[in-house]
């Protein structure tokens, strides 16, 4: 347990055991997913389903921690597994270098919780549908420019449809900044811990404004 000495006592030994027995699916291993993985492996998660259809491109280098000049052209999901193993050789993962669709139950089979790190609204709505079929809790995160948002879509409260309505596009011209990725991913991991350790499902949409350093919580009805 020396590896986790600095997790204690903010995290109890019992909680650490729980974390080490978790199986987490990370869907999308780009800006958000890379940092979510980094956080979770260092916290002590040992088992993952890692899902991303893409390979690294040059435009990922501004923010995606798994991308380096050496990993350009490599599959994101495979590179994620390699990075996780580099930190902790006992990590095990099922790797899917394919697109998630709402009929791909196999991609989420056996996991305790799912983290939404996708980069499109349409993909997120498909993921929520799949999680609903499988009765899984989904920790949502999304960013654009200086702005991020997180919330939890639980079996009792499927909120992504309420957030996005029937809109499928956002203002892509504002890009994706690294600070926003890191903060938003860290909040997602915190929401995951609350759900797993304390059974606390955060229902508010938490809005992160990195530019003005403001965080606001919004009730979604």
């Amino acid at each position: 347990m020396e590896r986790y000495a600095r997790n204690f006592n903010s995290i109890s030994r019992e909680e650490q055991e729980k974390i080490m027995n978790l199986k987490v699916a990370i869907v999308g291993l780009g800006g958000l997913g890379g940092y979510v993985l980094e956080n979770l492996v260092r916290l002590g998660v040992k088992s993952f389903n890692l899902i991303d259809r893409d390979v690294f491109e040059e435009s990922n280098l501004n923010r995606q921690i798994l991308s380096t000049e050496k990993t350009l052209g490599l599959k994101k999901a495979e590179e994620a597994y390699r990075r996780a193993k580099e930190i902790d050789s006992s990590v095990q993962a099922k790797v899917f270098s394919a697109e998630l669709d709402d009929n791909r139950e196999d991609m989420l089979e056996g996991v305790d919780i799912v983290v939404d790190c996708l980069d499109s609204i349409a993909g997120r709505l498909k993921l929520e549908t799949l999680c609903h079929k499988l009765n899984l809790t989904l920790v949502h995160g999304a960013i654009r420019g200086y702005y991020g948002q997180v919330t939890v879509s639980s079996p009792q409260n499927r909120c992504l449809r309420m957030i996005y309505k029937d809109l499928r596009k956002d203002n892509e011209s504002l890009g994706n900044l690294p600070m926003t990725c890191m903060v938003t991913a860290s909040f997602q991991v915190n929401l995951l811990l609350k759900a797993i350790l304390y059974n606390e499902i955060v229902r508010d949409l938490i809005l992160i404004d990195v530019k003005n350093m403001e965080i606001e919580r919004l009730k979604i009805q």
Binding site: G30, G33, D119, I143, R144, Q149, Y164, K169, N176, L218
Partner: peptide, 10 residues
């Protein structure tokens, strides 16, 4: 009145 855009990147 509060107004929110969809945010969808990652």
């Amino acid at each position: 009145l509060s107004l929110f855009p969809p945010v969808g990147g990652g």
